[in-house]
């Protein structure tokens, strides 16, 4: 029976083929059968984690606490050259140019991506806007967030900064960033379940040397990473502690 790998549902849609190619490379490299099972949203992901049906996961930092502390997953590697940053967008023609000028009862369009929403809410704190003050519109993807802002259904929208950067010029003409995070410490990570324990070492070795051959370097390019770097439990715990400090309660 093949192992199951899933990718946190906040991956960029245009990288999907990159993940399948990565998996093909990985299976050959570590001589294990691995099947990719994509999930549609974070609710579906939580259910899969609870059912114990995942062996490998490229996880959002907000899911790492549950995976490590409750499900005994082990951190294997983290991507180098990418961090999770959020941006708050507003309509291009808005006269508001700083967070502090937003109304207290602001309406926010957001996806279900937990770290983006956590960072977004933190960036509203200097304006004395708390989660209790806001009305939210949940969107299935980042482009829908932008549309809700463009249509005036939402005052602002929370996006992954990378997603905003990749919007078409047509969208960027209609929305602008109000504030962008510069946290530099939050990142995704690849984790393995206890069921994968005896293969963790060869998995980690394969990942951290992936750039040493031309195929591996191309695969990294398709995932938009520079490389994979080994990650240990201490680092995962540090990430978990950081997320804990950022929660707004």
């Amino acid at each position: 029976m093949p192992y199951t790998m899933t990718i946190s549902p906040d991956f960029k849609p245009d990288l999907i083929s990159g993940w399948y190619i990565f998996n093909t490379w990985l299976q050959k490299k570590i001589d294990e059968k691995i099947h990719i099972e994509m999930v549609n949203d974070f609710k579906e992901l939580a259910s899969a984690i609870d059912k114990g049906s995942i062996d490998l996961i490229y996880a959002n930092p907000c899911d790492i606490a549950k995976l490590v502390r409750e499900k005994s997953f082990t951190p294997i590697a983290k991507p180098v050259g990418t961090h999770d940053e959020a941006v708050i967008i507003i309509k291009q023609d808005s006269t508001i140019s700083e967070i502090e000028s937003l109304p207290g009862n602001v309406k926010i369009a957001m996806t279900d991506v937990p770290n983006v929403n956590t960072i977004g809410l933190i960036m509203l704190e200097p304006a004395d806007i708390t989660p209790a003050d806001v009305e939210t519109i949940t969107c299935s993807n980042y482009i829908t967030v932008a549309k809700e802002v463009i249509r005036g259904k939402a005052d602002i929208g929370f996006l992954l900064a990378d997603a905003f950067d990749e919007f078409s010029s047509l969208v960027k003409k209609q929305v602008k960033p109000l504030i962008t995070s510069k946290i530099h410490v939050l990142h995704h990570a690849l984790l393995a379940s206890p069921g994968f324990a005896d293969k963790q070492k060869k998995l980690q070795d394969a990942l951290i040397t992936i750039q040493n051959d031309a195929t591996g370097a191309d695969i990294l390019k398709n995932l938009e990473f520079q490389s994979w770097e080994a990650m240990d439990n201490d680092e995962a715990e540090f990430l978990i502690d950081l997320i804990d400090t950022l929660s707004t309660n």
Partner: peptide, 8 residues
């Protein structure tokens, strides 16, 4: 304090 930054 600069917008969007965190001191850790």
């Amino acid at each position: 304090f600069p917008d969007g930054c965190l001191i850790v």
